[in-house]
Simulated assay, not measured.
Amino acid sequence: MSIRVMLVDDQVLLRTGFRMVLAAQPDMEVVAEAGDGLEALEAVRSAEVDVVLMDVRMPKLDGVEATRRICEQEGSPRVLILTTFDLDEYAFSALKAGASGFMLKDVPPGELLTAIRAVHSGDAVVAPSTTRRLLNRFAPMLPGTAGGGIGGRSGAAGRPELERLTEREREVMMLVAQGLSNGEIAGRLVLSEATVKTHVGRILTKLELRDRVQVVVMAYETGLVRAGGPPR
């Protein structure tokens, strides 16, 4: 079955370029397009979509709020944020809203296709080290982070769900947030990579998170890892 993709961007030329790349793939098809967040919400309701390529800065309704509303729906498609990164300070908020990752708009076609396939299969498409770099840059701008949100004690104290984790799972969670891959975590903890993958899966289940990106977000929010600093 083809991966059904929706393109959401207010730049028609950019959507055209992405559509041409995706149309050349035997396992992908563009089933809907939208020029702003409101159009995206309508399109999701009327079309069967697996993956949404979502711009952030758009008129009427921005990509962050559109992502949040889409991800709140049962059986929602997965959202991949397309951002300029250096200019876009809302990318982190989009990850919090439920997006499965982000990529630069000038990403090479091959990387974009790989990312779409990864998102469709349930993985996060952002390398953990890249995610950490984004968090370190934008975390201080988030509401509620001053005086003990990200990197503070009150964040962890306000998240009793962390008590569901075993000591090993908490350790794995901190290493995920530091930018280590499953293989690197396995080497650090002297475990098999399959065991690490199992731990990550249990963390997702216990904390009711969508993917690895959301693990990183929660680790920063609760103070397990401090933005710009070492783990607690």
Rank of each mutant, 00 (worst) to 15 (best):
G149R: 13
A127Y: 07
L80M: 09
E111Q: 12
R226G: 08
E163A: 04
T114D: 05
G155I: 09
M103W: 00
T195K: 07
R226A: 10
T131S: 04
I150C: 11
L38C: 13
D10R: 05
L13S: 12
R78E: 06
R210M: 02
A47P: 05
L41S: 09
G17P: 08
L224Y: 03
D36H: 14
A139N: 06
R57M: 09
V216Q: 08
M20E: 14
G101A: 10
M6R: 08
L113R: 08
L204I: 00
I81V: 15
S76Y: 05
E111A: 06
V51P: 02
M103N: 01
P143N: 12
R78Y: 00
R45D: 15
E169D: 03
P108V: 04
M54L: 10
G183D: 01
E111D: 11
D106I: 06
P109Y: 01
T84K: 08
L207V: 06
R212M: 02
G187F: 06
V30Y: 03
A99Y: 04
L53R: 02
A118E: 14
V107S: 03
G223H: 05
G144K: 09
T145V: 11
P108G: 01
E169F: 07
M174V: 12
V176Q: 03
G223F: 04
E169M: 06
M141C: 07
G158R: 12
R168T: 09
V52Q: 01
A194D: 06
H199E: 10
E39R: 10
A146T: 10
I70M: 11
A124G: 10
G101P: 06
F138Y: 15
G35P: 03
E161D: 12
G179V: 01
R188T: 12
